[in-house]
Design a binder for these strands. Structure first.
Lengths: 207, 207
DNA sequence: GTGTAAGGGAACGAATAATTCCGTTCTACT
DNA sequence: AGTAGAACGGAATTATTCGTTCCCTTACAC
């Protein structure tokens, strides 16, 4: 609480966090919702980003960067090949990079730099996939693009609060990993299965 | 092309088909989009349904009915238990009932009757699940609610035209079925994996 | 004290969309 | 042939939503 500059620096982060939370929950959310969530006025947003689009581009760029980081970290893992691959998958699901990247596509105009980051991210993912197949732990008829779509399917799950959502995503990640691994096998599923009430509650929620 | 009455009857169906297509593609689509897709004026819609909400309720009801039909048909299958269960899963994915039901939730106010249909649908799904587990062909740590969420994940896939989308949905259904079946095994995946171009194209599509 | 960066939030203006309304067309029946 | 009215097309209406701008206030730095 020392000085306007410190407050501003704190707001930088507050706004980004709020934007992440709001836009991952609803990619079409109004910018006022971000300001409210951050507890700041609208002009605090416009002081930092010239437009909504610029903010979305920033978020997407951060998401791609995060994706790249997680993947590079997994590529550096020299241990058990399957565990390295599985850890990578869990890492991407945890980071929820899909909600910050492809799910936002269409709400803004992608920049050249975003394109370059996306290419790099794709290359790293392919490398990760290649390694697991070469080590004989990942079924070879699944391609890197398949993995990308599997991530999207898992990211489509949204139920209850953030923690419950994460728990369920890991549950289904574990399930699908059972059919990706060589040899296939059933492993214990983490987290409790959804309750009927959790599912039926959604009928009354405004979209 | 005989008479206004025949034309009107034809329009009944045209409008429903258009509504299904439009709202499964975008649950928040404007009603004018339905009219345009159907090739009729807006008043042709309002003559049949008092409001947008009424149309959505009708679509959802039809979707639940379809779900119930497919499930009852599968329950009537007395052949190989696994094949019956797998056929049921494929049937639901093909019918795309998820896009007409839970995906529309929040865009309208559910009626009592819809609630009853949903309960019935749930009961039938549970029966289907129970049978497969009892026959020892479905892993028992997966619950009916799990199956429901798996359907939703698969229904979240939307890539290219309708046929391509269907193809990919079956690809990932097959994949996840590998980890549902007792014993687990890898079976051939149907349909070609997504191309990189198919995935990257979405960056420019308006949401 | 005062200049100025930072911020709050009302006001503006441009969509977007549900619904209504009015004039037109075509059929069925006299 | 003439006409009542069902079925329609689509413009006009009205409400609402949102991105963006603007103006005024605050509080720190000097």
């Amino acid at each position: 609480m020392s000085g306007r500059k410190a407050q501003a620096a704190r707001n930088d982060e507050l706004i980004l966090q709020a934007a992440r939370a709001v836009f991952t929950a609803d990619p079409g959310a109004p910018i006022a919702a971000v300001a409210e969530k951050a507890g700041v006025g609208i002009s605090a947003l416009y002081r930092r980003y010239p437009s909504k689009e610029a903010l979305l581009q920033k978020l997407c760029g951060d998401g791609l960067e995060l994706y790249i980081e997680v993947t590079e970290r997994a590529l550096a893992d020299e241990g058990d090949p399957w565990e390295a691959f599985a850890g990578y998958m869990r890492g991407i699901v945890d980071a929820d990079t899909n909600s910050l990247t492809i799910k936002l596509a269409g709400t803004f105009h992608p920049t050249e730099e975003l394109g370059r980051s996306a290419v790099k991210a794709g290359a790293l993912a392919t490398e990760m996939h290649h390694r697991a197949v070469a080590a004989g732990v990942l079924r070879p008829d699944v391609t890197p693009a398949d993995i990308a779509l599997l991530f999207e399917q898992i990211a489509s799950i949204k139920l209850g609060d953030e923690e419950r959502t994460s728990q369920l995503r890991h549950r289904y990640l574990t399930l699908v990993m059972d059919s990706l691994r060589v040899p296939p096998a059933h492993r214990d599923l983490p987290g409790p299965a959804p309750e009927d009430g959790e599912l039926s509650a959604r009928w009354w929620q405004p979209s």
